[in-house]
Amino acid sequence: MREEVYYFDKESGSALVLADTFDFLEKIDEESIDMIFADPPYFLSNDGISCSGGKAVSVNKGEWDKIDSLEAKHEFNRSWIRLAKRTLKPNGTIWISGSLHNIYSVGMALEQEGFKILNNITWQKINPPPNLSCRYFTHSTETVLWARKNDKKARHYYNYDLMKERNGGKQMKDVWMGSLTPLKEKKYGKHPTQKPEYLLEQIILSSTKEEDLVLDPFVGSGTTCVVAKKLGRRYIGIDQEKDYLDLAIKRLQNS
């Protein structure tokens, strides 16, 4: 597909890019990114059902959320992580979110591609949808892996003091609790896997400084960029779906 800068913020030098993630990652300057947050496809679109607003709904998100095999899923994860690593500064870090459908592949791919996993964050949702089949425990958590390059010289940034302050004067633990994405963050439109702003706020504040450059290779509705802008960070967001980028632009222009 043809690549283009779909939205450019002259004030901060930030951009949303309409492109295939794999192609555009190869064009980003080497070791230019301070932090990456990625919410890649979970590959859970299997024609099943879930619950939303008290109603049974299809779990299918789109063709981008389907994969043919376990091997193809893992190669997908290794490939984009390999490309993302090239863009990351020596002391930069990467955060990747996922559920049981993809996070084990992501964790293995990180280690295979030369990363050291720093933390395994458990995001516990206080208001998860019920399990309609009543044959499993309710799925109420997702995992966010935090990693840096596996280099003994690497000195990743962690704002320990701020995280301690945000946690009432105690060390921040690796279990974070909060609600699903509130309706007020979806007023310009919806994305099937949209993350809440408070989650990205904690991630960005903990591992970046003002003016740092944040990359989201699967930007979707733009939560990473919206929060980065609010916190005085620069951003690059990539997606191949115009509709999602249009939604992200509305959010950015009204944030």
Rank of each mutant, 00 (worst) to 15 (best):
K209F: 13
K153L: 06
K209D: 08
K125W: 06
I103F: 11
L83P: 00
Y198Q: 10
D174S: 14
A19S: 15
S50G: 14
R155N: 14
D29Q: 09
K89T: 06
L25P: 00
V226F: 07
E197M: 12
K187Y: 12
T122F: 04
T138S: 08
G169F: 13
Y158I: 09
P182H: 05
V106E: 04
E30G: 04
P40G: 05
G53W: 02
G114A: 10
N131G: 07
L100T: 06
K73C: 03
N102W: 09
R2F: 02
I121D: 11
K152T: 06
F22M: 11
K55G: 02
C134A: 13
L213C: 10
G237T: 07
W176M: 05
L18A: 07
S206T: 10
L162Q: 13
K61Q: 05
L132G: 02
E4N: 14
L100K: 07
E165D: 15
S206W: 01
K173M: 10
P130L: 14
E111S: 03
H101I: 01
N119A: 12
A147K: 00
G222N: 08
Y7E: 15
S32E: 11
P130G: 03
V17I: 15
P130E: 03
L200I: 04
I81F: 07
K116T: 09
K55Q: 11
F43M: 01
V106S: 05
K195V: 01
I96A: 11
A228I: 12
D239H: 11
S206F: 00
N159C: 01
L145I: 00
S105K: 00
S52P: 00
W146D: 05
G62Q: 02
E185W: 10
A248D: 07
W146K: 00
K170V: 08
Y157L: 15
I28T: 09
F76K: 02
L100C: 07
M177R: 10
K164C: 09
D9A: 14
G178K: 02
E30R: 14
I204S: 00
N127W: 02
N91M: 13
W123M: 03
S105N: 02
Q112L: 08
S179M: 09
P217N: 13
I126P: 04
D216S: 12
K209M: 08
N131A: 08
